[in-house]
Design a protein around this nucleic acid. Structure first.
Lengths: 209, 209
DNA sequence: TAATGTGAAGTAATTCACAGCA
DNA sequence: TGCTGTGAATTACTTCACATTA
């Protein structure tokens, strides 16, 4: 059994979205590829890492494939998430994820500022970051979204790792390389993205990613 | 002269940030690598794509290297950006980028909703998306940040591409594969990121990315 | 026959290992 | 001596090509 590339995992949610939105009963790797922007071979290989879900000569059953990807991504188990930092970005992220009825649910929103603790944001009430460990354990939080100022990011990430959070989506403008190898950190750094785009603005003939 | 990997470009802003924040006069690839979470070989190779900026046996001059990366990323020319969509996410992004005195400046914020056109967000006033083409030309916008609902994303992206925007940072939950190969599209899809993290939550022994 | 699943080939990116130079 | 710069080796990922099967 071979190792599955991270890149393949990262494409599965895109396939899943199309399968959820489409009205068809069957789909081929060519169609799914065109819809998501990948090659048909890529689609087939990604799916084949996890099993033979298709029918030769026919394609894939949309409903069945949707369920398979759902299971592969462990969305069937309903992983729970939490946002730390209820500033502009944190509250926007909560509202954004809440608006689409998501399978990854945001269960809590934390902040350190006493003035916003208790404030209602969507269906959530801002709680004190002091209760971080309690909340992670009580709600069984697996994923944390970091939307705190850069000074707070590393200490908060360490606390998250220590109390058993398994994955962190880090919006803070600082590298969070936790000492805990079992915690997966995915950085999303707006400033760095914009600066990289600045380079591509100056390039000719680029294609979408 | 070889092609420079996109991945290398995407690391340069991280190096730049550390060089800007650090107080040292010199730096080695080992130190810069540790600070940013990459290997020293990676740092050296990334920099060497663009020239020999270091001194053997010594390392790199922080100030000089900072200027070099600044120039490579074309931040010295001051590329201008614009946010389309003044909902929760769009306004949060504007405030977020504005708070750090950035080298990529956000010059305009657009929306289609008449009720929020004219509203002040930070130092910007929300303008009508009808004026998109005018604004891009008047202000010389090179980068657009898409924070619109998914229905609007593709048509807006097409308009952006058509009037000369060179790079799009797409937060809308839909694949924007523009027909214009000269436009670079970088998707940041929160839902897809969270779903991918759900997979990694179930994995043992992962390391940060 | 039409589309999957998969080894093999090819391409891209990273790491290694060390020559070269202050 | 210490650290850069870089070809070579390795690893990771993608595309090709086709045998396979409903």
């Amino acid at each position: 059994m071979q190792r599955i590339p991270d890149a393949a995992i990262r494409r599965l949610p895109a396939y899943l979205r199309w399968l959820t939105e489409c009205q068809e009963e069957r789909v081929t790797s060519v169609i799914l590829g065109q819809a998501t922007g990948y090659s048909s071979e890529q689609v087939r290989k990604d799916l084949a890492y996890f099993g033979a879900f298709g029918t030769r000569g026919v394609g894939y059953d949309v409903l069945a494939l949707r369920e398979e990807i759902y299971r592969i991504l462990r969305l069937d188990r309903g992983v729970r998430a939490m946002v730390v930092g209820a500033g502009h970005l944190g509250t926007a992220l909560v509202r954004y994820v809440a608006q689409g009825h998501q399978d990854v649910q945001i269960m809590a929103l934390l902040d350190s500022n006493p003035e916003i603790i208790g404030v209602q944001v969507g269906s959530l009430r801002v709680e004190s970051v002091e209760r971080l460990e309690d909340i992670v354990r009580e709600l069984g939080i697996g994923i944390a979204v970091l939307a705190v100022p850069k000074e707070a990011a590393v200490p908060v990430a360490d606390r998250l790792a220590e109390c058993g959070v398994r994955a962190i989506l880090n919006f803070a403008p600082v590298a969070v390389c936790t000492r805990y190898p079992e915690v997966f950190v995915q950085p999303i750094d707006l400033t760095l993205e914009l600066q990289a785009l600045s380079y591509f603005v100056g390039q000719r003939e680029r294609h979408s990613l």
